[in-house]
Design a protein around this nucleic acid. Structure first.
Lengths: 198, 198
DNA sequence: GTCCAACCATACGGTCCCGTATGGAGGTTG
DNA sequence: CAACCTCCATACGGGACCGTATGGTTGGAC
């Protein structure tokens, strides 16, 4: 590491985010992180009020990384369909962010964690839904397809982390074909009433 | 509760499973559960060797409930297609089991949790895959569709627990139409080449 | 009734973590 | 150089939980 003796609040937040990825919310503990940073609690309680403040700082950092930065990175793609394909093919390849997300699921009852997970989930569905609307689907159809798409993404991530052996070899092709189906195929038995054109 | 002063190991395992649903793995703690049962640690350490033994007992109970019992309950349905529909429509309606599963995801690094999650996930994919094969799909196609189906199920559950507001109103219809697509529609761009040179 | 085994209550020491109190070390400013 | 402000090390008390030790209670065998 660095021999810089003076630390900043951001250093502590980064270390907390790192610990979150390794051991979940309980791993955001002051004394272990202090030892890992090569310092003591004295440093921490100068920069932060208490442990909860560190938790919120780490969650805030994760929320930024998981939503805004991803959506920002997609602005380079042209057209909603290209964005959708790029989104699902790249986002599946992430690693650390997923570890943190799965860890947070176990602590969703924590008052600071639940709202973050809710905002992230809603932001994802909303964004994907808007893309499907831009493609040309009705709001209801777009909402349904977005829900399915996000569900596939979340479920696949969960499977990859718990039973990678149960996944087929060519997962990328599977995801691609699923996006194809979501983008092109008309719903066989659409739950929306048939009197709605377009 | 009951005024029966004498408890059994099963009582402790049930209480541990209950605690697991409320607070995740860290909630399987001897002293709090003892207080909840109206007894003391003296009772626990008579029936169990230590806390890890209690954790394994609770996980074993959950694994049984989540796999064998569900699959057993489906033997009443006739034909693979009916079983698939029944499976996905009923399994989505569960509640406590899902709470436990999401909590366990955050503790998948625990040596006793990871293998259980892996077995459960593999058993689910394998079973659904067999059903798709019975319907008439090739082993590869069945594997792909099973992976997608289980992913949709897992992802939907995750969304329902973190951002229920982001889900459309008629979720049942959405799930039904998704199963329809998985059962009937031929894959638009099948990832398996016809000549299979890999 | 006696006795023994199953079962439980209580007390204790140990570990890990939180948060506070307090006294520095080290650079900065006048 | 002296006062000062920033940042950190150390020490302390407290709480939660684990596991052990030990004695007490209860119910059935005989």
């Amino acid at each position: 590491m660095d021999m810089t003796q003076r630390l900043s609040a951001e250093d502590w937040a980064d270390a907390a985010l790192d610990a979150l990825g390794r051991g979940g919310l309980p791993a955001i503990a002051v004394e272990p992180i202090a030892a890992r940073l090569g310092t003591t609690k004295g440093s921490f309680y100068w920069h932060f009020r208490n442990r909860d403040a560190l938790i919120e700082a780490a969650l805030h950092r994760w929320e930024e990384r998981g939503t805004s930065q991803v959506i920002e990175a997609l602005k380079a793609e042209e057209g909603p369909e290209a964005k959708l394909r790029k989104l699902f093919t790249t986002v599946i390849a992430f690693g650390l962010s997923h570890r943190i997300e799965l860890s947070l699921l176990g602590s969703r009852d924590h008052p600071a964690v639940g709202p973050v997970l809710q905002r992230v989930a809603e932001r994802r569905v909303t964004y994907v839904r808007e893309l499907f609307e831009e493609v040309g689907f009705t709001p209801e159809e777009a909402h349904h397809r977005a829900t399915l798409g996000v569900s596939i993404y979340l479920g696949h991530t969960q499977l990859a982390h718990t039973a990678r052996a149960a996944l087929p070899e060519n997962v990328d092709a599977l995801i691609t074909s699923a996006i194809d189906a979501l983008l092109t195929a008309p719903t066989p038995a659409p739950p929306t009433p048939p009197t709605s054109p377009t």
